[in-house]
Each structure stands twice: as C-alpha cells, then as structure tokens.
Design a protein around this nucleic acid. Structure first.
Lengths: 337, 337
DNA sequence: CTGTTAGCGCGTTCAA
DNA sequence: TTGAACGCGCTAACAG
C-alpha cells in the first residue's frame, strides 16, 4: 500500500505538503503542486480514508436510517430510490455512507444507538421514513448528538433540518387535477360533489398535512368530503371503498397503493369513479393504468437530504427545505428485471 | 469520547491489557477481565472502529456491489432483500458494510475501481447480480485483489466463492410441479405435451442452467419444448406468448415478471394455460394470483454470501455454496406501505 | 511557501 | 500474566 510518505519522498517534499496539496490548501506553489500530483499519478496513490478520519476526527460518514420492513415489496421502490439518490450524491461529494435499517437497532436503547453511531464515527445522519411510533428514533433525533436531516418529518433545529415536498399543496393539487381531468364523468346536477378521502395513518407525520390540503380543496370547491384512514394498506383502502365508495364521485387516496386498492374495489363494485394516488410508484402504472398521482422524486429528495446534512456538518444551521413535486398520469410501463 | 485509555485507567491496568481482554486473548486472569469489563460498562466504552482498522490494517468492511438500475421497480424487492439480509448478517458479525451500486462506478476503469475500493479499506466484497455484460466487474473479480463472493455466477477460485440456488434443479422442479398441479387441464390425447419456455437472457449466468433444467424435464417427460428468450422483460414475454403461446399446454418462464407477462397475454388471447415463474416476488402474488414459482430466499442468500466472504477473509479458500430453494404457489397478498 | 512534529485510538510485539 | 512502547497513515498546528 502506497502511503502519503511515499508520495512525499517521490516528489521530494514533506508529508504535510502532500496533504496540503490534496486538500487544496492555499499558499502552495504551482511547481510543488505539479510535483506532488505527478508523484501521486506515478505511484497510484490513494489516500487512506481510515487514517484521515482517525486523524481529523471527522469521518465524512453519513448514516442513512431507513425502515424497509420485510414484505412491503410495493414500496421497496421508494427505498431503492432513496438509496440510489443518497449514495450517488454521497459519492459525488466524496463522503461515505453507512446504511442502517431500523431493524438493526431493535435490541438497543437510545444510548446504545448513540454509542453505536459513535463507534461508526458518523458525522451526521438522515432519517428517511419515520412515523410517530418510532419513538427511539425520535429520541435519537432529539438528543441532537449528530447533525440530522429528516425526510418528511417537519422538525427543525440548530443542527436539524427537514426535507420533503409540500404535502399540503401536493394533495390539494392532485385532488384538484383529478376532478378537473374527469369533469365529464362528474355529475352537474346533484349539488356538491362527493369525495371520499382515504388518508394514511394518524401516526404518520405527513398525514395531517395531506388531509389539510384535501380539506382546503373541499372547502374551496364546496365538496362533500368524507375522510377515512387506510393506514397505507391496499386492503384497507379496498375495504373502505367497498363500504363507502360506491356513491362517491371521486376517490382521493394518500398513497398509490391505496389508490390501487380503491380501484380494485370499484372494479369489484362494477362502477367507475376517478381515483388518484400519491407517490408515483411504477406499480401504479402497471396495475392501475392511467390514474393521476403526485409524483415524488424520491431520488432527488434523497440527494437534497445529503446536501443538507453536509451543510449542517459544515456548521450551518438547520432549515426546512421544500422539494418540488409534480403531477403525472401513470401509464402502462414495461417492467424489466 | 471515551477511549481505551480511559478504560485502562479506570480499571487500573494497561491499555494493551484492555485490548487483549476485548479480543479474548488467552492468558488474562479472571480478575483482570472482570475489572476491565466493569470499567467498560461504567464508562460506556465503545471501541473506535476507525482506530482499530487503522492499527490492525484489517477493516472488517465488506463492499456490497449491486446494480439496481433506476426504473426496475418490480425487482427492487430483490435488491432490498439482498440488502437487508446482508446488512443484518454483517451487523451480527460485527463487520461493516459499504453499499456500492454499479452506476457509481460508471466513469472508472478497473484500476480506478480497485483504488477506490482500497481507499475504502474494504477487505472483501460481494457481487449480487452480474451479467456477462458487466465486463468491468468481471475484470475486477478476476484481478483477485480482494476476497470475493459472487451470487449466481458460477466462478470459484482461491479467494473467490459463489453462492446461489441450484438453478438447473429449481427450473426442473417448478416446471414439473406446474405440469403435475395442472394435470387436469392438460390434454391426454394429443401426444407429448407442448411447452413454451421463456428463458431469460443469453448473457445471464443462470440462463444456461435454467434452460438445462427445462430441457432435462422435457426429455424425461417427452415434452415438445420450444425455447424463446424474453430478456426478463414482461413485455417481451407477453409478445412471445401472444405469438407462440396460444396452442401450448404449459408456459414456463425463467422469471416471475415474464410469467406475469405471459399470463397477461393469455388473458388477452382469452385462453387458459398454466404458467409458472421463478423468484417468488410479491408482485406475482399480487398480479398473477395463484401461479407456481420457484421461491428464492434472497434474504438468506445474502446472509450466506456474507458468511462466505467472512470465511474467505479468514484465509479459507473459495468454494461453491448451494442455497436451498422451495416451490410456492403465490396467493393474493395484502401490500402495505 | 514548506517542513517538523505531535497526536488520533488502537493492535501488537517484546520485556519484564 | 501484564505493561511499555512503537507504529498504522494522516491532519493540523507551529516553526521556519
């Protein structure tokens, strides 16, 4: 293994000079820089990140905390997009990632977790999906031992930022678009349109926002709104729709999966009503062809979260970052393994 | 941060003694061990893995190489199962993981990649899905710079193992079961049964094995076998089935996704023939209810791969590890986000 | 502008 | 059975 010392010797300079060149310190003459770079090339030198971390006490390591329970295949897509986005960005910024699933923390208390993260020498973390039930993670965050970025959890602090779309507005937008797009199917005569809103989970941090968006639209358009909680379950959404969807004009769901469930139920009921979802997962284009949905760009959200945690690691203070959302009509997609 | 020095002082012993206790060296008196452990508990000491790695020159870090291209939602499930399995096992063994996607390596040549992995101080890696087209990865493997475990790629070397199910036998099994299970739908009268086999991709390492299994069964049962290549594409499998599936008695597919495509095509053709798949992904239970498939336990495969790379890291030599497969009939599953 | 030097926290001889 | 001491490869003052 070729070390910084070898480079220094080869270039005829001191070790620290090599280090300075590597880190773009000012006050290094062009000539020296060239010599060092030449030596690096010739020797195929690669800095040892372990030694650098030990010495600087800064690892540039970011922990990615997520909770992909086994058997939730439909949304593995979301986790993968988060992961790919985060890892791509982390690599571009020359940082390191440690992927941690909640399940790996099951037997630890908060102190254990903090110690674990410290033993990993992380210098910040991102939490990708957390519900109010994840008390340990919540505690971890509130300890503020590390800079933290939360996706879709509206907490901001000195060393804590949040990142996500504007769920209130997004829900408003997609519901409105669904009504507009399907205006020809909607009754003109029986007074206010009747909308069934299948919300997520009372414990989710975004449910309140989305519901608020739906309520705002209902008020503006004078809709007759019914709210039910589907817990992001396809089956519950199906059952809710079977029980309460037949006479609605529109069914708005807080996730694509529930939208699929609702659509399946309507098919069973042998009626058609417009349904919309929230997420933009491929499965929706596959199963429920041509439905509107909010398109969350999970890849981009993850990248944004990484940039944000880097900001915090550099001493900046926490903030709320809103990532844009778009609306799409999911079409049939070929899926390739 | 509490270091080994603090523990040593607290326990009234030398630093090296603490280290020895931690690593279960022989020749440490019971009394000393107890003192040290007590001090560790009291101080909540956690060893600094970075320093340990630097000092020992062994990082215990395993790189997980996989290729989840964007927009392949249906099989994100597979990647997630691989990831969860690998990370769980790595944590249990007190190792570290570095997740690397092929896409992150796009702009590097093999030497760059090797240097990159060295800069990460990894001491071994696992490749989770590689086709013959991934030439750079293949080169990386053949350099044998690190212990490597290949999933579903039948290469073995001194520092290289492979892990996976027996694809030949699995394909044989599931095709046979499909025929047996559906014997009542099959004709008794028109001579050998006619089977359409939709294979994967000529470039995949497993395609030959699976096709071999299918051919063996065909020979034994005197089947009339036609082989087509669907490239693991739902759409291609659909097209193949539309073109050549109508008069078959059974359609056997080398992946669940293609099985779904085949089933969709049969539905369009308005005929029924038994179809079977390969993988056991949830989507199949969701879309193509009640179809047989090989069930690969990707979680377990990943765990096995981790154990195997650990073996290699400890100096053992490479081998071929066969993980059991099972057959299942996929049923409708509720999907939860 | 460049070099010297003192650690970072730990593993590992080698003496005692 | 234990401890002192060196070094892993690098960063960061500080000195020059």
């Amino acid at each position: 293994m070729v070390s910084i010392r070898d480079v220094a010797e080869r270039a005829g300079v001191a070790i620290s000079t090599v280090s300075k060149v590597l880190h773009h310190y000012p006050n290094i003459s062009e000539a020296t820089q060239e010599k060092v770079h030449a030596a690096i090339k010739e020797l195929n030198y690669v800095p040892n990140s372990i030694a650098a971390a030990l010495s600087s006490k800064k690892s540039g390591r970011i922990a990615l905390l997520m909770d992909p329970k086994r058997q939730t295949a439909a949304i593995d897509q979301v986790f993968m997009q988060y992961l790919i986005g985060a890892l791509d960005c982390i690599k571009e910024l020359d940082l390191e990632a440690v992927t941690i699933f909640f399940s790996m923390l099951d037997n630890m208390d908060v102190d254990d977790i903090i110690r674990y993260l410290m033993s990993l020498n992380i210098s910040g973390f991102i939490v990708f999906n957390m519900s109010r039930e994840d008390k340990k993670i919540r505690d971890l965050i509130e300890r503020e031992e590390f800079p933290a970025v939360l996706v879709d959890v509206p907490l901001v602090g000195e060393k804590m930022s949040c990142v996500g779309i504007d769920h209130e507005q997004a829900q408003y937008d997609v519901a409105q678009k669904t009504i507009v797009d399907n205006i020809q199917y909607l009754p003109e005569d029986h007074g206010p349109q009747s909308v069934l809103y299948i919300a997520g989970n009372g414990n989710g941090y975004v449910t309140a926002d989305r519901t608020k968006g739906m309520r705002r639209l209902a008020q503006e358009l004078n809709l007759n709104l019914t709210v039910r909680y589907g817990d992001y379950s396809e089956k519950k959404a199906r059952d809710i729709t079977l029980a309460a969807g037949k006479d609605r004009d529109v069914i708005v769901c807080a996730s694509d999966l529930m939208a699929i469930g609702a659509m399946n139920a309507l098919r069973d009921l042998d009626v058609f009503h417009p349904v919309c979802g929230f997420d933009g997962i491929t499965l929706m284009g596959y199963v429920g062809k041509q439905m509107n949905t909010v398109q969350q760009d999970f890849y981009q959200i993850a990248r944004t979260a990484v940039l944000e945690v880097k900001r915090l690691m550099e001493g900046e203070s926490g903030q709320k970052v809103v990532v844009p959302h778009t609306l799409v009509r999911m079409e049939y997609l070929d899926i390739i393994r």
